[in-house]
C-alpha cells in the first residue's frame, strides 16, 4: 500500500495525490491527515488531485470526510485541480462535495485559503486594537 505524503507549507498542509488511490490508502490518508492537523495546528488543507484520472464513489466521499475532519480542527479544506472527466464522473455519480471548497489550481486554492485566513486575522487585529485603548486609559 502506498502512503500519500502530507507536506506542510506555513500553516497549510498540502496533500498531492499522484497515484490512483486504493480504498486502503484513502483510509490511511484520513488517519494521517487528522494526526498532522492536530500536531501542526494547520489552518488549511489543500488536496491536489490534478494527477487523478479515475475516481469512484468511495474516493468521492473521501473529500467530504476529510473536510469534516478538518473542520473539527478549525481548518478549511480546498480541493484543487480536478479534471473535467473526474468532475463529470462525480456529478454522474450524484456526489456533492458538501462544504468542500474547490479551486482550479494550487495557486488559486492557496489564494482561497488566504482569503479565509484573512477573516481570522481581522478578528485578531480587532482584539489587538482594543488592548492599546485599555492601556491608555
Amino acid at each position: 500500500m502506498e502512503r500519500v505524503p502530507i507536506l506542510k507549507i506555513g500553516d497549510v498542509l498540502l496533500v498531492s495525490i499522484q497515484v490512483d488511490l486504493e480504498d486502503q490508502s484513502v483510509v490511511a490518508l484520513q488517519e494521517d491527515l487528522a494526526e498532522r492537523i492536530s500536531s501542526t495546528g494547520a489552518h488549511g488543507v489543500v488536496i491536489d488531485i490534478s494527477a487523478v484520472e479515475i475516481v469512484d464513489s468511495f474516493i468521492g466521499r473521501m473529500f467530504a470526510t476529510i473536510a469534516s475532519i478538518s473542520r473539527l480542527f478549525d481548518a478549511d479544506t480546498v480541493v484543487v485541480g480536478m479534471r473535467p472527466a473526474v468532475a463529470i464522473t462525480l456529478v454522474e455519480l450524484g456526489l456533492t462535495l458538501g462544504e468542500v471548497r474547490t479551486a482550479l489550481d494550487l495557486e488559486k486554492g492557496l489564494a482561497v485559503l488566504r482569503r479565509l485566513g484573512a477573516d481570522r486575522e481581522v478578528r485578531i487585529e480587532v482584539d489587538e486594537d482594543d488592548e492599546p485603548v485599555q492601556a491608555f486609559s
Partner: peptide
Amino acid sequence: LKTVMAARLMGA
C-alpha cells in the same frame, strides 16, 4: 445542471 455542478466541483 450537471455542467454547472461539474464546473463548481472544479472550482469555477
